[in-house]
Design a protein around this nucleic acid. Structure first.
Lengths: 337, 337
DNA sequence: CTGAAAGCGCTAACAA
DNA sequence: TTGTTAGCGCTTTCAG
């Protein structure tokens, strides 16, 4: 592939003219035309890496995520991609496969690649994370988790869980259970559990530890947790699940055990994923606006890159409760739809 | 951030020594240690862009895909990421949002970025595509579609559709319908339809055009297509759907119309996505090994990059039929599980 | 095994 | 407005 000198020669102009054509464009019409003609003829395109060396700007944003084949991550990334693409930035994608170790390494990789900024779809923060993160010298935005001193886009996980749980209690649940995720995940784990407990407290209840299970972010894991609960012979009449996938697994297990949703057990999830709508019993859940989160994260990052502003900002997104059949009140038949 | 000269000075060695440390490692133990100590002290890491300018190797692979929030694309990308990551290559991700125009532009973008290779999760090939693709000067692998003269990883779409359809006919279906996708998609569109028709032919049937609909790749679209079929008052007793999402929409519509699956209408999809397992009636489908496709695509690309071999190779992956309840024979009750 | 020096392709002063 | 020139940070001969 040709370089700028050779191309300039073909176009019959100087290197600077070519450079100006692709940058500020401080150029006479004559030269502009000759350059355009030469491009059409040769297909010349400037070498981005060389430009990056010179300008110290890569127009590259690193996106670190734990898992692509999770609907929420994919949607966030679509949002990110949409605005970055439009603004002429490219995405260096790093899938850590849920490996905290890789997450740390990624940061190093991105540093070597001199990305202009980083978006981290975060899960768990260890002390190591915090220490490495605070050493990063480019703007960074965290999505899905809140960490003091950093730019964040997050959801109101506690309120979401609180609202959904309360809904089930209002609809008559007396023995609620929780299938959450690990507490180290401050958002999907700790906060959602806190919301669950807050609702219980409001109704003067406390949750039996045997009614609380911790799942992975998968259907299978939700299934296993539900089976563990059911095996204890004290069947709950409502289950709050930290994600829709977990809820789907839980429902599968309930069905296998001859328990009807919502007649015997109410179930709800979080995320409004595709599956929620089409489950055996349509699932009550909360829409979390993942794509919007991605869009806002990218916007926040760009403005940080451009303004060099150092004041960390934190944006909490709203949510919508989607009430479906899985949490309907069924004792008073005339109230069901 | 420091450069190699400054760092070499701190370490008390020459630039060349530092470079050798990070590359071939033709170096005395003494210098090696001093360099390592200096790294620990300063956190120096070489600038990848400068290296790329010099070596003309970016260790960057462009991945172009139509849509991230599609389970199949996400899984392919996970496979790609897994091997590329391991081999020290990075992913430049481009989400075209199903826009053929953007797909073309992406190729240009990747050229400017001097990626070492390209993986294209392909959908539709226009003549423009072919012409642009043949101008690409780096190795390229197509996933999901077959195109003569290019490296491809693809599925046996026709056989998949044939096998699934035949299964429904064997189970007693007499009036099969098809909800496919546009024919321009040679794989998911044309080939799957061909397989469907081949099975019908084998059973001495032809398909009434009113029993064939073309959907987008979404649940909603599957729903709409099914509604159109149902509205014609000639209800099929089996529906082959080109994807699981489409099948899910179709089943939703059937249920709303009081039609039972599989008793009144059998349904099957393709892809073995998460939803298939947990639908109202568990869906018969075919597992397509998307992640494997990604892994193989990345391996194929790497070997092309390394060997500079120019002979295009084409790899067709196998599939597994997952027979679930949605296509069960129901007239002979004792044969159902 | 080592260091000096040339140069990858580009941009940005600077002087014209 | 333009062209010349000096680097950006790195690798890689080449001569020692």
């Amino acid at each position: 592939m040709m370089n700028i000198s050779e191309f300039a020669q073909i176009a019959g102009v100087s290197k600077s003219a070519v450079s100006r054509y692709f940058n500020d464009g401080y150029l006479s019409e004559d030269k502009r035309e000759r350059i355009e003609a030469a491009i059409a003829q040769t297909g010349y395109a400037p070498n981005i890496a060389a430009r990056a060396v010179r300008t110290r700007v890569t127009k590259l944003v690193g996106v670190i995520l734990p898992k692509l084949s999770s609907e929420s991550c994919a949607r966030v990334t679509e949002g990110i991609s949409e605005v970055l693409n439009r603004e002429g930035y490219k995405i260096l994608l790093i899938n850590t496969a849920n490996d905290a170790h890789q997450e740390i390494e990624s940061l190093e990789l991105l540093r070597q690649n001199r990305v202009d900024g980083i978006i981290l779809l975060a899960t768990v923060f260890t002390d190591l994370h915090k220490s490495v993160l605070s050493k990063v010298r480019v703007p960074i935005v965290l999505v899905g988790q809140q960490l003091k001193g950093f730019n964040c886009i997050c959801h109101n996980d506690e309120e979401v869980a609180y609202t959904l749980t309360r809904r089930m209690l209002q609809n008559g649940a007396k023995h609620p259970a929780l299938i959450g995720v690990l507490q180290e995940d401050r958002a999907a784990g700790a906060a959602r559990r806190a919301g669950f407990e807050k609702a219980l407290e409001e109704f003067g209840m406390t949750c039996d530890p045997r009614m609380m299970e911790t799942a992975q972010f998968t259907m299978d894991s939700g299934y296993d947790c539900m089976r563990r609960i059911v095996s204890r012979r004290q069947i709950p009449d409502a289950v709050f699940c930290a994600t829709d996938d977990i809820a789907a697994g839980a429902m599968l297990c309930l069905r296998e055990n001859g328990l009807r949703v919502p007649e015997d057990v109410m179930v709800c999830g979080v995320g409004d994923s595709k599956i929620a709508r089409i489950l055996y019993t349509p699932l009550t859940t909360a829409r979390l606006h993942h794509k919007t989160a991605g869009i806002e994260a990218a916007n926040m990052l760009l403005s940080a890159i451009r303004s060099k502003s150092v004041v960390p900002r934190s944006l909490q997104l709203g949510y919508d409760v989607i009430e479906r059949q899985s949490t309907q009140q069924t004792e008073l038949k005339y109230e069901t739809v």
